[in-house]
Amino acid sequence: MHWFNRKRNFIAMLGPTILIYCLYIVIPLFVAVYYSLTNFKGIVTPEFIGIKNYIKMFGDRYFLVSVKNTAIVLLMSILVLLPASLILALVLNRSFKGSNVYKALNFLPNIIAPIVVGLIWGYIFDPEMGLINSALDLMGRVAWKQTWIGGLVLTPYCVGVIYSWQNVGYIATIFLAGLKTIPNELFESCQIDGANGWQTFRYITVPMLKETFAINIILIITGCFKIFELVYQLTNGSPNHMSEVMTTYMYNTTFISSRYGYGMSIAVFSCIVTMSFTLIYLFILRRKNDEAGGLK
C-alpha cells in the first residue's frame, strides 16, 4: 500500500490512463469547441466566425424540434423506464421457479444492437404495414390507427417507449443489485414492527436504493442524449427532420450536409446540456444527503 501512496508511483500508474483520456476525450472536446466557432465544411480551410453558429442554432426550426424531441424521450424514459425497471427488479428479487430465466429474458433486449431494435420496431410501428395498425385493422378499429412513426406528433413518444423496452432489463438489473445489498435484518425488523408492504417499500427499500436511483437516473439522462441508431433506423429524422433527436440532427448536419462547424456547435451544446443535467442532479442529491446527514 505504501508503494501506491508514493506520488511518483501514483503518477506512473495513472499516467497512461490520463494520457489516453486526454487524447481521446479532452482534446477532441476542445477541437470540437474550436470547430464550432468556424464555418468548416469538411475540406476547405475553416474561417473563424465567432459564436455565429450558436446564434443560428437557436433560430433553426429543426434544431429546436430535435431539442424538443430529445426532451420528450428523456421525460418518457424517466416516467416509464425508471418505475418499470424498479417494479421488474422487485418482482425478480423474489424467489420463484424460473426466476433466472426471466432475468435473462428481460436483459435480452439490451444486448440487441440498437439498429436491429429500430428495425424490429419499425415493423411494429410502421403506419402502413406495421403490426399495430394491421392488428387494429383486423379488429375493425380503423379509427384507432395512428401514424406512430413518421408523423409530426407521436414519433418521439414511440422512441421513448422503444428506448424503455430496450433498457428496462438493464436498469432493472442495477436495481436488483441494489436490492441485494439491503440487509435482510431491516426487512425483518419492519415485519416485527408491523409495517405493511407499502410502508416497507416507502421507508426501507426506496431510501436504501438512493445511490442506485442516482446511478440509474444518470444512466438514463446520458443514454437519452446518446440515442442515435434507434432514430436513424426508425425514421432517419423523417418527415423532414421532424423526428430528429439532437444526435441524429448533429450527424445529419455534420456528415450529410457537410456543415461541420454548425454540427460541432450542436455537439458542444448537447454535451453541455448532458453535463449540466447530470451535475445538477448530483448536486441536488448531495445536498439532500447532506441535509439528511446520510449517504455521501
Binding site: P127, E128, M129, T147, I149, G150, T235, N236, S238, P239
Partner: peptide, 9 residues
C-alpha cells in the same frame, strides 16, 4: 405518394 413515405426508404 405512399402513405408511409416518411418511413420508407
Amino acid at each position: 405518394f405512399p402513405g408511409n413515405v416518411a418511413t420508407s426508404t
